[in-house]
Simulated scan of single mutants.
Amino acid sequence: MAQKGLARDTVVRAALELLDEVGLDGLSVRRLAARLGVQNPALYWHFRNKQELLDEMARELLAPEMGGPGEGESWREWLTRRAHRYRRTLLSHRDGARLVTASDPGASVAWGFEEELRTLVGLGFTPGQGLHAIGSISHYTLGFVLNEQARRERRERGEARDLDAYADLPLTVAGVREVGAPTSEEAFAHGLRLILDGVAASLRAR
């Protein structure tokens, strides 16, 4: 049958390419089928509904494993590297953060998380401390990128305001001039350091 000949990974890659073009709101099974030159039922052979397609797209996005700490790398250096890599992954596709929040990437990603917890336990964390550490950093990164990508969309639509538009908020303007935009690379790194300082404090308290 024709639908059997359409490989699942081909569909997912095409869906991610379409996501970059039209965004999450514009992504539909109909548009994806048209892109692939097939009828809608050919896609439903692989995915029962759009949600299953989104889940598979998120799984593809998150599939590359982080791996453990490198030679001589501390837990703090490792978690810093992990957070920056996660941010780059989410930014690698339009609406990448929204895609992840709207999806369940499944068991393979969950097992990767389990291995990361195992690594932190081996470095002196309790399972709960490891869960809080990775969870807090992941949620911070996801929220940061959600805001970052939303601001980018507004800029592309010409809806973003420049700094002069905030003249009636002098402290806000002064703060931005001092440390940069709240969605900058430096802002992300600063927030991450604050979280890691808290993780280190909780370890010392134990």
Rank of each mutant, 00 (worst) to 15 (best):
L169Y: 08
P69T: 11
L79V: 14
I134T: 11
H132R: 13
P170K: 10
M57V: 12
D197F: 03
E156W: 08
A167Q: 04
S74E: 07
A58D: 00
A33F: 05
H84Y: 07
R13Y: 00
L192W: 06
G158A: 12
E159R: 10
R87N: 01
L91W: 00
R161A: 13
L131W: 03
G68Y: 04
E116W: 01
A181R: 14
S108N: 09
V22G: 08
V109E: 02
L123F: 14
V38W: 04
L90N: 01
T126H: 12
R76I: 03
W75Q: 00
S92F: 06
A83L: 05
R59I: 04
R81Y: 00
A201G: 11
L61H: 00
E153K: 05
T141C: 00
T80I: 04
F113Q: 04
W45H: 14
Q51Y: 10
G122R: 05
G96L: 01
D162L: 10
E159F: 09
G68N: 07
A160Q: 05
A165F: 10
R31Y: 02
E60L: 04
A167R: 09
G135W: 01
E56G: 04
W78F: 13
D162Y: 04
S202E: 15
A205F: 09
G124I: 10
D104L: 10
A15C: 08
L79T: 13
R82E: 05
R118M: 07
D162N: 13
E186D: 07
A181W: 15
A58G: 06
R30D: 12
A133F: 03
D168Q: 08
R161T: 11
G191N: 03
S92A: 14
G198A: 11
R177D: 06
D55T: 08
G23K: 02
R8F: 04
E56M: 14
G72A: 13
G128A: 13
D25A: 09
E186N: 02
E17I: 02
A187D: 08
Y86N: 03
A165I: 08
G124D: 10
E77Q: 15
A165C: 12
A102T: 02
L6H: 03
S92M: 10
E73Y: 01
R161F: 14
T172Y: 14
L123Y: 11
T172A: 15
M57I: 11
L18G: 04
E116K: 10
R13N: 12
L53R: 01
A150K: 12
V38E: 10
I137M: 00
A189D: 15
T10M: 10
R81N: 04
L117A: 07
S108Q: 15
L90M: 04
A34I: 07
G175Q: 10
A200G: 11
A200D: 15
R155C: 12
E56Q: 14
